[in-house]
């Protein structure tokens, strides 16, 4: 159970927490999303946590571009794909 779970605007904090990813991703039906937004607008805890959680996801997405593969790794990959033909 979530300590301090409160029912605000007809929605429990625990319900917001359960659906937070879908809410932030915009994947909830509009009526559900509106209900959660109503709760978050009046609940400091959920608003703060939602902001932090959203920031964590946004920060994760800053890693969008992977580091280049090291030359040695790329070289071994090519060697396995196209082994040199021995005369």
């Amino acid at each position: 159970m979530l300590p301090g779970d409160r029912r605000i605007a007809g929605v429990w904090c625990s319900e917001v927490l359960e659906k937070l990813s879908e809410y932030l991703d915009g994947q909830l039906p509009s009526d559900t999303s509106a209900l959660l937004a109503g709760h978050v607008a009046e609940c400091t805890r959920c608003a703060e946590f939602g902001a932090e959680f959203g920031a964590a996801i946004a920060a994760l997405r800053t890693l969008e571009h992977p580091d280049p593969v090291a030359p040695a790794v790329a070289s071994r990959l090519r060697a396995r794909l196209f082994p040199p033909v021995r005369p």
């Binding site: 159970m1 979530l2 300590p3 301090g4 904090c13 625990s14 927490l17 359960e18 805890r45 703060e48 946590f49 902001a51 932090e52 959680f53 920031a55 964590a56 920060a59 994760l60 800053t62 890693l63």
Partner: peptide, 29 residues
Amino acid sequence: VEELGIQAGWGQSSPEFTALRREIQAEVA
């Protein structure tokens, strides 16, 4: 989810997290 939420800081104010947000790429990795 409740348990994970508490571990992730639900209900706890954390100004230091917000302050770190802009320089967080290495921490995220």
